[in-house]
Amino acid sequence: MATRKKVLLKVIILGDSGVGKTSLMNQYVNRKFSNQYKATIGADFLTKEVTVDDRLVTMQIWDTAGQERFQSLGVAFYRGADCCVLVFDVTVPRSFESLEAWRDEFLIQASPRDPEHFPFVVLGNKVDLKDNRAITENRAKSWCDEKGNIPYFETSAKEATKVETAFLTIARAALQQEKDEDIYHDFKDAVNLDDVPDKKQDGCGC
């Protein structure tokens, strides 16, 4: 591809209710934290323009409802995702145990072309609550390693800890994914180009 078109990267944030998905998104996009977020219904998104390795990209970050029953709406929101961020709360073991289900559900509903290599990033959020910590860094890391070396970050949306770093990694992973998809589509278009004129000629014959 010779031309540098404007790149839109779609990022989906998943995880149990109350782990801090909305807070992470707002901390990253608006550099703000509030204790007053409403529960997210359906899905919502914010966009942010960032420079990743000298390339200007627009990240469209999707924040989703955490309650399980909203998963059936996933298809509509996950379509075309370039990276999926799985979030758990380091003080709530259940939210960590759910990661696997969120990952599987995403792969089923988004059905990426190459699920084996689809980029995920895991965030263990609320590390500021040191006294209530229930999931150790090692435990989270070893799960991520098992699942194909998923990058892992320990974040606090409240104190802005590691949020910027994590989203830079997310942006890079998404950009890489986008490039791979582009190559695939260029290839597909190239094949199609051979087919289409033939049909047209048929049509014009009369």
């Binding site: 209710s17 109350g18 204790n35 007053q36 977020y37 409403k38 529960a39 309650q67």
Partner: peptide
């Protein structure tokens, strides 16, 4: 879930 959402209704 109810407990979690009560403060997240009209904060």
């Amino acid at each position: 879930q109810i407990k979690m959402d009560m403060p997240r209704t009209f904060p």
